[in-house]
Amino acid sequence: MNQFQYVRPSKQQAAIEAVAKDANATFIAGGTNLVDLMKRGVMAPQKLVDINRLPLTRIDHDPGKLRIGALALNSAVADDKQVREHQPLLVQAINAGASAQLRNMATTGGNMLQRTRCPYFYDTAMPCNKREPGTGCGALEGINRMHAIFGFSDKCIAVHPSDMSVALVALDATVLVSGPRGDRRIAFADLHRLPGDTPEKDTTLEPGELITAVEVPDNPFTKHVSYHKVRERASYAFALVSAAAALDLDGSTIKAARLAFGGVAHKPWRLTAAEQFLVGKPATEETFKQAATVAMQGAKAFKHNEYKLRLAPNTLVQALKNATAA
């Protein structure tokens, strides 16, 4: 790993300026992904701006919404009484990610900004447009069993690895951002981007912009929720496919639904058409299967991830079954 400058500003604005003014500077919070990438030479910032001591750890439930500070640890969010009460889907998704130790380090903002786990991105001896634009996508014609079936481009077929983000996109969260040109709010669905011709850009954040909090509006999805994550072992693994399902039931009739996939695209994948399809229908496996078919429209597989075309809809059905039974 290269040597770097380390600074630990005590004020948010100073941190933002430090990064905004230096193209080779980056924020570090939990470090669970950045340190890993630096060790492997995938990222080599020359200045680290440690934001861990900024006062951004609060979790508050105000009327109508939950506000989670960007530096609230994943474990703190998952164990928080207010979050458990108002946003149980988010709790399930967070607890499906990583390990207890990592959730004690990873922050809310950092979790959203973790980078893909594509092995071509991680190995500096392999081609990867995300790591080194112009070198080609190693996975496109390579080993692509973990890769995207939605929203990819011929430049990049990587997937976003966050579980938490899948719940947040389903729950219509909003990201609060502070930057050199002031504050702004970003709908969670607009935070991550598709690779297109510039897969090196994971998000729509501008240089120096710092996530300060995420807001999740209150909703009726406090009981019938499920985050079902299919992986190659029972815990502590990235998803092959995951599905977030939240239902508002009137007896056995679906009043409203929120659905999203993880492990299928460059961003957490909201399923609005399938949500619409479910409204007013009975909560039965047959309905769920039809909704899953709707959800899969436009999916396309590569050589090794063809199974995702079956696994993704099935996982969604399983999540919907779990949610109904919850």
Partner: peptide, 25 residues
């Protein structure tokens, strides 16, 4: 790389992977 847990220590009482953070933090 934070993938095994062998490096687990307590920082201010919380269990963390000591391999994934810089000491200065």
């Amino acid at each position: 790389y934070g993938q095994c847990g062998a490096c687990t220590v307590h920082v201010d009482g919380q269990r963390v992977n000591s391999c994934l953070s810089f000491a200065v933090m």
